[in-house]
């Protein structure tokens, strides 16, 4: 593969001094602008893999290279997440006491100094996901699909080139799932963003350009 954005070299993630092996000796590359889905049974290590790719978790063995950079420190990972990596979770992970707009603003601290600019930028993103009219609502008053769109707006607010989504439609009905996937895909197409989505749903996995199947912490298939 020529243009690689992320690479895992013999990566393992173990718990309890190796008694539990979540991932075992994974070596793989993700190309820039790729649309990759990760499938596999529950407990097979999909989420662990995604967390490692965004530096939320660190491997116990092996190394991860992001955009040519090796040996990335916790501080550097935080900086990468602030500027280049966007996360979307199954359970949305919005801050309940903040409004929709404020939730989208959160990643802009440390990136944009002026509060008015942050606000404007967050508003642009809410418009982009079609929720400008919900900007003052708190997550508790919004539907699951709306919450996930706000979470996506938050993931996109710093214009990342690497989006990691862990079962983004896991809590949504079929129709809303399709809308959310359409949104993610449109971003992938228009911005040439690399998109990595963990999913159980064959329909979603089939939309990807490449699919990886995890079984027992190892990669059982790569098509």
């Amino acid at each position: 593969m020529k243009n690689v954005i992320a690479e895992l070299k013999h990566v393992s993630r173990e718990y309890d001094d190796g008694r539990i092996v979540a991932l075992q000796d994974i070596t793989m590359q993700i190309g820039r602008g790729e649309w990759l889905s990760i499938t596999g049974p529950s407990g097979s290590g999909k989420s662990t893999l995604l967390h490692l790719l965004g530096g939320l978790d660190r491997p116990t063995k092996g190394s991860i290279v992001f955009d040519g950079r090796d040996k990335i420190s916790a501080r550097q990972w935080a900086r990468l997440r602030a500027r280049r990596i966007g996360f979307v979770f199954q359970s949305f992970n919005l801050i309940p006491s903040l409004t929709a707009l404020e939730n989208v603003e959160v990643p802009l601290f440390g990136v944009m100094r002026r509060s008015a600019k942050r606000r404007q930028k967050a508003m642009d993103l809410l418009e982009r996901v079609g929720l400008a009219d919900r900007s003052r609502h708190r997550p508790g008053t919004l539907s699951g699909g709306e919450r996930q769109r706000i979470a996506i707006a938050r993931a996109l607010v710093n214009s990342p080139d690497f989006i990691l989504a862990d079962e983004p439609t896991g809590n949504l009905d079929t129709r809303t799932s399709r809308e959310i996937m359409d949104l993610l895909e449109s971003i992938h197409t228009s911005e040439r963003t690399t998109l990595v989505v963990v999913t159980h749903e064959i329909e979603i996995a089939s939309r990807a350009t490449r699919t990886i199947r995890c079984v027992d912490g190892m990669i059982a298939g790569d098509i």
Binding site: R79, N93, V106, G110, A155
Partner: peptide, 16 residues
């Protein structure tokens, strides 16, 4: 704890 996890996930530095 969860809010702290969220802040960290969206790239907040330890200092912040």
């Amino acid at each position: 704890k969860r809010q702290i996890g969220i802040l960290s996930a969206v790239g907040w530095s330890s200092e912040r």
